[in-house]
Design a binder for these strands. Structure first.
Lengths: 341, 341
DNA sequence: CTCGATCTTGCAAACGTGTTCATAAAAAAT
DNA sequence: ATTTTTTATGAACACGTTTGCAAGATCGAG
């Protein structure tokens, strides 16, 4: 046995006894209710201070039916995009005296729902799910649990009542449009076969930009990675093995682009002289690759903040639908240039 | 008002009424206590199932004085090392049915302690602090709170009872030794002026390796960044402005090294032909820089896991001191080579 | 001095669960 | 058939807080 065995903490009753009042009065005094005489309140607060009293949130939660806690479920904590989002969530949560539970679901829908259930059992006030694979299927569940669920970048092909999504279409259209404007006509796309809705959208933007320029898409220039660096390398290898090389490559995300960049260098080709390269997300890293990467900035931190603010608003009793959409901003760096003549 | 207004959930009492037993029996049935007749238990479980009953952890926590929750406080959620550690923590926590609170303290000791307090008020069963600026000062606090605190990479110059630290000295000594073995004698160090204990240790290892080789350290080749990429660039510029250039640079961490790498390239120098470069941490990125970075691997995920396991052991009643130390492993990649003749 | 109005306070119930203790019922032993 | 033992159950309290209600205290006006 060690020294951390639970034994009685000092509670509101202890200081009630010490102050010679009822514990109800102590409770009121500590929340500076106007129902208690100022001097008594002061005296009680001093005693509480002296005793080192700290309120017990568990008891309070049981009484108030509120835990001041929100649960966040993500696919992979260590993913830089996710980490940024969570950082945004945590910032506004703490600013409003909420704590945040963090849990991983490894992109598995069943685990995702199990985690949501576990959050519910802990009676979180609200739940945030990033890159949900469950999407609008939550609507009945949230209603039954009486717990609001907000989705960030819903990956299920459904429109959910409360969500913050990045609309990838204009961003990728703009990125590919930028390549077209530079004079490229042979533009490849490296997608993410696990990217679900997001991959579809980015591919959509790619196609729209080509159509707008009257360029026919070429089947063999559409390949897929896994959204991670490795996948980018494999996909880029496939492209470089082709008889006809594209002069530019638009990638599902920065990680994919970084993988592609590496393979391009391995083949002694130069970016952007031989091949232009663009990504999506604007990871911290993107500005530090060789050359710095042209990409579409996804406001990760911001999106975490927005989702949390929506949640807090719902918890405050407002009931506006909140299908918020953000757009990416094209950031032109050194990895894109006109094609060789 | 929206649909998420709190109103009564179904509780153990509801299904007690439905089953025609007391709520005590239901409680027992649901934790499969041997005190209740198997058939009754079965019947109760079925009714609970049908009612969609989910236990309320708040009530349970109040009764058991346990929340099955651990709090994690970190300096910056989005820091890749931190994210990896948290990922390790979450994995073992969830495997043992613990939930984890995550909070940021932005490397500010006061915020750090405030967060610890807030975790205590929520009656977490234990607390993990990564890169604490408070260190052993927690000993009395943890005792008073009756809540175990485990430190990961304690940054306070004090030895704390429960901690998992990386001992940077052998790792950096090995890294610099590797440079020496390659034939380098002019080796610079780029430190982290906010690195506290860790910076001291890595510098120590550097000096020991030099001493071992009978090389005198040169004041002007010891510069400091901020542990981040930007700091690395500034520090490297300072080195490159010197009349006498080092032939190798050992960096406080990979981020610093990546910054340095960038500046070296800007000056049209090559790594490793002109300058060898080594880092510390083995970030995911380190193997994807140009050239891949020689570095010392810090087992981030592992350290998160270990700390959590220690915590769980303490919570199970064991009371062994646990000053665990891990070592880094030198990973030789392409950024180090013999100096030019 | 009395009466109503206004403060201040305590009592008790509530929140949802776990747990101890006593007792009833059933089973086993005599 | 009676006593002892075992098993199953419920009543009651505990956990720490909030809160509606009522009672008591205080005060000012008449």
């Amino acid at each position: 046995m060690n020294t951390f065995a639970r034994s009685s903490y000092i509670s509101i009753k202890d200081i009630a006894k010490a102050a010679g009042v009822s514990h109800a009065t102590v409770s009121r005094a500590l929340q500076s209710s106007s129902l208690v005489k100022p001097e008594t309140a002061q005296r009680i607060r001093e005693i509480a201070q002296r005793f080192g009293y700290r309120p017990n949130f568990v008891g309070r939660s049981l009484a108030t039916q509120r835990t001041q806690t929100i649960g966040v479920v993500v696919n992979a904590i260590a993913d830089p995009i996710v980490a940024e989002m969570v950082s945004g969530v945590e910032a506004v949560a703490r600013a409003h005296d909420y704590s945040v539970y963090l849990a991983n679901c490894h992109a598995d829908p069943e685990t995702e729902m199990r985690v949501v259930q576990s959050f519910h059992e802990r009676r979180v006030d609200g739940i945030l799910v990033a890159a949900s694979r469950v999407g609008a299927l939550y609507e009945p569940i949230a209603a039954q649990m009486r717990t609001p669920i907000i989705l960030i970048n819903n990956q299920h092909p459904s429109s959910y009542k409360y969500s913050v999504n990045i609309n990838s279409i204009p961003g990728s259209r703009e990125a590919v449009g930028h390549l077209v404007a530079l004079g490229h006509r042979d533009i490849a796309y490296i997608g993410d076969r696990f990217g679900y809705q997001t991959d579809l959208d980015r591919f959509s933007g790619y196609r729209q930009a080509l159509e707008l320029a009257g360029i026919a898409a070429r089947e063999e220039w559409i390949v897929h990675g896994d959204g991670k660096l490795e996948g980018g390398t494999l996909a880029m290898r496939k492209l470089l093995d082709l008889p006809a090389l594209p002069s530019a490559v638009f990638c599902y995300n920065d990680m994919t682009a970084i993988g592609a960049l590496r393979v391009i260098h391995e083949h002694s080709l130069r970016v952007p002289q031989d091949i232009s390269l663009a990504g999506f997300d604007d990871l911290f890293l993107a500005s530090y690759t060789e050359p710095p990467l042209t990409t579409v900035r996804q406001p990760k931190h911001e999106m975490g903040r927005m989702a949390t603010e929506i949640l807090l608003r719902i918890l405050a009793g407002e009931d506006s639908d909140a299908r918020t959409e953000v757009k990416g901003e094209l950031i032109v760096r050194a990895s894109t240039a006109p094609p060789r003549a």
